[in-house]
Design a protein around this nucleic acid. Structure first.
Lengths: 230, 230
DNA sequence: TAAGTTGTAATTGTCGACAATTATCGCTTG
DNA sequence: CAAGCGATAATTGTCGACAATTACAACTTA
């Protein structure tokens, strides 16, 4: 099973390995959102020195999974509703632009590959059942292709290197398995069509609407949850 | 003279100070673009240990001013034309969205403040002379206000914490003092009007055109330079 | 001569200890 | 009894040394 992060090169140093372990632990909530990180304790737990742990913490901070204050320490980022919505706003802007650039810059081969990926998704049992797979891995795969297709290193860094982890974290912790699977698949198809036609303007609009729809879906859910829990 | 980076809190640790010094040195080209960074050498030069220097390097990496490879070392990022244009594409997307959000989220007080800042720019001697100030500090001030006005922490982090430094680096190293000062000022004024009218859609469009105009201006310059130098 | 190899030198990664700062708990005092 | 203060404990920041990896150079060999 290949790594699902296209920007992540094979880890060599132990700090890299610790970073990956902690990343998963934070994303999946094993290290709770908002909790303080004790350097001595974690170092002992992982059987490494504090220097190595701090190196790993620096990388976690780079993808905004933890926050550090001088002489105070590190905390896992807190998952808030506003934080989630803020991320979707950024995604709408950046992935919309990435989609426009993809329409301009993707090679014909890349487009063919993406089409075949989508075709495979269409026949996937999971999609037909309308359940988890497509919301999770399949959805991410599609968005990755578009982002990488932009051929804009800055876009790729920000989206795949930073926001990606946060998105996954929120998905895990807020338990988001929306009923948008089939709708999302249709939207993906339209987007690919626009890219294939090299229509950057339309591609951007469609991607923005696609992400905005997700955001609104979340907003509705939150509102519903609030009113029912009170 | 206050710090011009709104996200930058007062530095306390020595690693912070080294970070700031190196940041300036890189941005202004004293540490050349693309050059390799020797940890032992720099540590000796700054009279600090390698650990502290590495802490500073980690922060430089966070704002994409240097790149690190495991077991190989750090290099200052290379200034390329494509890199510059990539940044402008990201800015167009993100600052456009920031502007839309600013129109929705800025307080009335913030808007008043921004208007008065612009009024002050209008009477500034530098602007009337059509020279450097407005392209540099004044322009940055305006864009900062808009970004902060979005009240979106993720947007603020990415734009002020990361892209900002790169933008300044390119401005220094490519020596960009374009003749767009008065035009830019007019565009800024229109943007503020749209924000004041709470017209998010228009605000975004205007900001995107404003940044796209800068990008095209650069593209023209580059093309000109290429054809003249060959 | 050019390519491959091996051994040495230099650089990076990791470690444990010390210094500086912060948090905590108990005490004093109004 | 509450609020402020002070000493102690714990945590973070910094340091220098060692281990592991990489880069370089001289040498061998086809």
């Amino acid at each position: 099973m290949a790594s699902n992060n296209p920007t992540q090169q094979e880890a060599i140093t132990t700090a890299d390995k610790i970073f990956q372990k902690m990343q998963i632990a934070i994303v999946e909530g094993d290290i709770p959102s908002g909790s303080k990180i004790s350097e001595p304790e974690l170092a002992k737990q992982f059987q490494i020195s504090r220097s190595t742990l701090r190196e790993a913490l620096n990388r976690l901070e780079k993808c905004h999974l933890i926050e550090r204050k001088a002489n105070v320490g590190s905390r896992v980022i807190e998952c808030t509703v506003k934080g989630l919505l803020d991320i979707y706003v950024v995604r709408e802007a950046l992935e919309g632009m990435a989609c426009r650039q993809a329409a301009l810059n993707m090679t014909d081969e890349e487009i063919v590959d993406m089409k075949s990926m989508l075709a495979q998704h269409a026949t996937s049992k999971d999609l037909q059942d309308g359940v988890s797979y497509y919301q999770e891995q399949g959805d991410l795969d599609f968005h990755y292709r578009v982002i990488l297709g932009s051929h804009n290193q800055e876009l790729i860094n920000i989206l795949c290197g930073q926001l990606y982890h946060l998105v996954r974290m929120y998905r895990c912790q807020f338990g988001m398995n929306s009923p948008r699977a089939s709708k999302a698949f249709t939207e993906h198809s339209r987007i690919v069509e626009a890219i294939a036609e090299r229509d950057g303007e339309l591609a951007e609009i469609l991607m923005r609407r696609h992400i905005a729809a997700s955001r609104k879906n979340i907003e509705n859910k939150i509102a519903l949850k609030d009113s029912s829990s009170v």
